[in-house]
């Protein structure tokens, strides 16, 4: 599943909100959602629109976990590291997945195919351990199960 639509008009996103500093995060979120990352050009546009200095916008974009300034892979995998998931071994699952994809830590594979991220609790503790692959919850996941799902995506 391709995460980024390629025909989204960034100006349309910018114009969704009034040009005030308090909408900075809204805009960054919408851009992140549409393009999967916030390019420097997009950041500049947002600053122009909201009147926030670029350095402050950059600080915000790097402060919050959900923003990425680098393009993300075509497939997004979140592994939950909430307490319940941790107790049920999600740490090992995440490590194994990253090892299999050749990643040192959370991040994007070189071919831009996968991005693995860890999240601190998705609030689905009853399903621990949980992973979310391209928006689909994978309840009670195991390393082999997750690997299979991931590999299937790569073959598409």
């Amino acid at each position: 599943m391709a995460q980024t639509a390629i025909d989204i008009d960034i100006d349309e996103i910018i114009e969704r909100y009034p040009g005030k500093p308090e909408y900075l995060i809204f805009l960054l979120q919408d851009i992140q959602a549409a393009f999967n990352y916030i390019s420097s050009e997009a950041l500049t546009l947002v600053c122009d629109h909201t009147g926030v200095p670029e350095s402050q916008a950059y600080a915000v974009a790097t402060f919050y976990n959900s923003f990425s300034l680098e393009p993300k892979g075509e497939n997004l995998i979140h592994v939950c590291l909430g307490t319940a998931c941790h107790l049920k071994g999600s740490g090992l699952i995440a490590e194994n997945l990253m090892r299999r994809l050749g990643l040192d830590g959370p991040g994007t594979t070189e071919d831009l195919k996968y991005t693995v991220e860890t999240v601190n609790c998705l609030g689905a503790c009853a399903l621990a351990p949980v992973a979310v692959v391209n928006g689909q919850y994978q309840p009670k996941v195991t390393s082999p199960k997750l690997m299979k799902t991931v590999q299937k995506l790569g073959d598409e």
Partner: peptide, 8 residues
């Protein structure tokens, strides 16, 4: 190109 554009 972004990831999506690469795919496209």
């Amino acid at each position: 190109l972004s990831a999506g554009e690469r795919a496209a």
